[in-house]
Structures are given as C-alpha cells and as structure tokens.
Design a protein around this nucleic acid. Structure first.
Lengths: 155, 155
DNA sequence: CGAATCGCGACGAAATCAGCAGTTCCGACC
DNA sequence: GGTCGGAACTGCTGATTTCGTCGCGATTCG
C-alpha cells in the first residue's frame, strides 16, 4: 500500500511493459508478453511487482469537464509555519485533488476541481483561507486544458 | 480519439462503474457487475461507451521519482499574443506533461518532469524562454508531492 | 400502430488469469 | 572448483473472464 521510496532501477523490459499499459491499461498479459518478448506469466509477475512497489498503478482517469465539474483552478498558497501540516489539511478537502509543496513565491500549489464558481468561492473563503498559517492565496482559474499526459516515466 | 465535449449526463450506475475502475483499472467486468448490479455484458458495453466518449480511460500511471525523474516543477508563464499557440509549442516538449491556460497573473501553467536540475535549467533557458511571446516565467520547484488523486469525477 | 433503437441478460466458444512446479541463471560463500 | 540459495522465467492446469451474438422488453419516433 505504501509506495516505496527506494530507487528501483528498472530494466528495458519493465519499461516496455509500463509503456504498454500506459497505452491501454486493460491490455492482456499475453499481448504484452508478445510485445516485450516475455511469457504471459512473466509479465504478470512483473506487473504485480511494479504495482506492489508503487512504481505503477493501473487506474481509470476521467475528464472532469464531462462529469459536471466545470470549474478547475490552481491555487498558489503562501504560508507561515510548517507547510507540511497545512498541506495535509488541504489534502483533506475533497475538492482538492493535487497538493504539492514547492520552492518559490508560493509554498504550496493545490489544484481544485469543483462544479461551479460558487463552489470555488466557497472553498477558497470558507475552507482554504481559514486554515491556520495560510497567509495569502492566488487563484488561477483554468480556461483550457491543453495537455495532460500519463506516460512520462519511460523516455 | 478526440474527446467529445458534449455534457453527457451519466447515471449512478455508470458512476459506480467508474469508481470501481478508479480503485483498480484491471478489475474484471464480472466483478464490477456484481458490485453495481449489472450483468458482465452490460458493464462491458458501458465501459466501452465511456471510453469511446472520452469520459474515462484506463491507463497506467507511474511515480516519476521511482523512475529516475528526480526534478519536477511547475512553471508559470506570462505571454503576449495567442496563448493557445504558445501552449501548443509547450506541449511539443517531451518533458512537459501538463499544460493549462489560466486566468490570473500567469497565462499558462506548465508542469515539467525531468531527471535533474541541469535538465530543468536547459529546458527553461533553451526551450521555454525562447518561444516567441513568452515574456516571463516563474518556476516552482517541487519539494514534496503531497496528494495526487485520480478519483474525482464521482462525488 | 408499426418500425427502429437501445439497454440489458443469457449463452457458448475462445481467450485469459492465477497458482504452482520445474528449470535456468547468477552471485555468494566455503 | 563446487555448492548453495535466490531470483526470474517457462510451461502447465483448471477456473474465470472475455467477447460476439442472440433475444427480449421498453422507449422513441415517424
């Protein structure tokens, strides 16, 4: 469950397997095996290991727009005190799907997915800005999602 | 291939199916059917439709850190001219995995995944800042990824 | 009213999955 | 040099799943 942090060095075959699953997460082990030159069982073992180690996971990703979440935004946050604690509190908010600690003029970046502007305003004022240590926020409302890739990881 | 933009209204059953696949993208249709109260074939049809419509896709997502990409950053960009054109050029860069047009003090946000600081510097100076219309950039180096969810979409 | 369409369940053939045993390879150790 | 142990792979088997197709009932539309 807990992703390991050890620097696993994966070979070319494992990378090829990951690439296959990045194209289609439901591709069969046999087909992957044919593509990477391994038996079906071997592919299955490797996939199991990769997911156990937290290197990779196969999941469904959705298009928020098509699911009724018409408003997305990135919020830059300046804080005082322990940013990790504040980041944790942000993570507890359902509408927040992405939280990262950064260096620069913001200490935290948080991505928000919500249904409309009212919900966004509510979130900012009632939830985020009320967190202890949140000094200032700046909101970047999404106008258009240009690119979203999941297949980094093998270049 | 091209995701539709029409506002499909999906019922509770489809949402439940998506939730199942968000937990585990390789779960069998039969098992999902049992969970949502549908036959295996019906689940299969719905999943096919959802993916065809671009509402959902099942893919492998990886942990960049564990794959040797030790440096990630968000770059806020101020531009002149058509931001869509510039966003397109940013999208062409392999190391850029996320590009969004925004309203606010940045016109574009771009997420970068690369191996080390040298590559990051190279990217910023040789690629991004050289794009016509890019007036200013501000880089937020990632210190810690706190939360990353793929299961919005059904709340 | 009648025809077409849609969503679903049912069914059988084919493919896939999961577990296990056996083999090979390779490095460590004596 | 020999041996031990572990890791990774292959092949096998039965259970399960997938996939195409069919029929049925409800809904839509002319």
């Amino acid at each position: 469950m807990t992703p390991r942090s050890r620097p696993i060095a994966l070979d070319e075959v494992s990378k090829a397997i990951i690439e296959q699953l990045q194209e289609d997460g439901r591709r069969s082990y046999a087909e992957i095996g044919k593509a990477v030159g391994l038996s079906e069982a071997a592919v299955r073992q490797r996939v199991q290991k990769l997911t156990d180690a937290g290197v990779m996971q196969v999941v469904a990703v959705t298009d928020p727009m098509q699911l009724g979440f018409y408003r997305q935004a990135m919020v830059g946050i300046r804080v005082t005190g322990d940013s990790r604690v504040i980041a944790q509190k942000l993570s507890d908010i359902t509408a927040v799907d992405y939280v990262v600690l950064t260096a620069g003029s913001f200490d935290i970046l948080a991505e928000i997915v919500c249904e409309n502007d009212d919900e966004l305003i509510e979130l900012l004022n009632e939830r985020i800005r009320r967190i202890d240590g949140v000094e200032a926020t700046e909101t970047f409302v999404y106008l258009k999602l240009q690119k979203q890739l999941y297949n980094w990881g093998t270049r």
